[in-house]
Amino acid sequence: MSSSSPDPTASDAPEAADAPLSQDAAQELEGIDEDTVVETLEVEPTHEIHHATGLATGPGAPGVAKVDPILVADHITRSFGGNKAVDVDHLEIPRNAITALIGPNGAGKTTLFNLLSGFDKPDTGEWSFNGRSLAGIPAFKSARLGQVRTFQLTKVLARLTVLESMKLGANGQRGESIWQAVVPPLWKSQEREIEERALGLLQKFKLFEKKDDYSASLSGGQRKLLEMARALMTQPEFVLLDEPMAGVNPALVQSLLDHVLDLKAEGMTVLFVEHDMHMVRHIADWVVVMAEGRIVAEGPPGEVMKDPAVIDAYLGSHLDEDIGVITGRYDEEGNRLP
């Protein structure tokens, strides 16, 4: 029924609708055969810079091993009606770093995201989180292991208040068991702790004043903030953000980027999907480039972005607009400020 659903907020709608079109569009626009690009990238790895990040054990190339991977994936494929949406041979995500997953529309980023977070089942493949295999593990269980995700189209709980949504995020709640739920003394004290933590996070995300409003009343940017804050209530180790900056009012982009950087500062690992390179350039420590379901390049942002094929094929030519400057954590030359 959802194929014809006029509901524009359906989670799968945009990617599903635009995937086949936009790939053609990308080819048309750039006039480049995708296969050529892939080959170029594979044949010409750049050797100089990878040591600078200290994340990888070798030069930046698709599937390069990481020094300390938090997530390792192998041979992941997923097809939709004969069309291979994801075909990832090997991927490692470095711990305590911000990794950006980029690529044009329809490259399979969100699909890979759904697979890694258990929201979709791959046709083949194995992947492990902290050495623990996640294949076949339902989404809620991988979330409990410390791997939390957000959604491209924010999923706010419209008729829950902001504070209620936050409290819902906390894990290990005694009162969520049906038997203990009916005896409030069993969970009241824990509830107070959770509320304190939620209020703290709301303050940090500048949503404190909204705490008693229904989530439905928030703006698009505030929803993104709430979703991220709610995800943090689970006290995750690994945060997957699906296009955290999409559709956000520019005034809020700064705040969002700040929060992403904070996650790393607090010891978390971040993987985020973005198809807009502006956002990626300075906050990412590592960039993974996908096209047509495959990983075609990997490396530190500077290195990947210098690859002319990547720039031409996937990133467009708007790298001069520097987001790093907006957040104040980078100077105009792109050097990280202390």
Partner: peptide, 10 residues
């Protein structure tokens, strides 16, 4: 409201 969101929270 949204079961996927709740699922994503474990």
């Amino acid at each position: 409201e949204d079961e996927d969101a709740v699922r994503s929270l474990g």
